[in-house]
Design a protein around this nucleic acid. Structure first.
Length: 115
DNA sequence: GCGCTGACGCGAT
DNA sequence: CATCGCGCCAGCG
């Protein structure tokens, strides 16, 4: 039973990543109460079905997409990220440089903290 | 049980 | 920036 609980915690953490923002495997693990277990997050993600799960918002701590460049999944992830207004260059998500506007305030990951 | 394999991460070199 | 080593860990021969 415990295993499924943990998987659910991870899935929930991923669901909480706001539209237009990204997180990392390690960060998701920490948010799920599993510090140091980024690999587990990767595992869980690889098996989960994508029924509305924003899996594309999870990147490596470097900001790189974790799939082999050019692969089918890599392209799909880049496509989804861009559809959320993020800039993806060389397989890496660049931080949004847009000046603060209502949109940013409403959707930015750390809007509260940046004010 | 043992070694290998990942959608990983981080500090050191 | 590129590599290495080590930590982490659930499967699958």
């Amino acid at each position: 039973m415990g295993k499924n609980c943990i998987n659910q915690e991870i899935i929930d953490a991923i669901r909480r990543i706001p539209y237009g923002s990204v997180s990392s495997y390690g960060e998701v693990a920490a948010l799920a109460g599993l510090p140091g277990r980024a690999r587990l997050v990767a595992r869980v993600l690889s098996k989960s079905e994508d029924d509305g799960l924003p899996w594309h918002r999870v990147l490596r701590s470097s900001g790189q997409i974790a799939f082999p460049p050019g692969s089918e999944r890599f392209l799909e992830q880049a496509r989804r990220l861009r559809s959320e207004g993020l800039e993806v260059k060389q397989g890496r998500v660049k931080r949004d440089k847009k000046p603060l506007d209502l949109d940013a305030l409403l959707w930015a990951p750390d809007a509260r903290n940046r004010l």
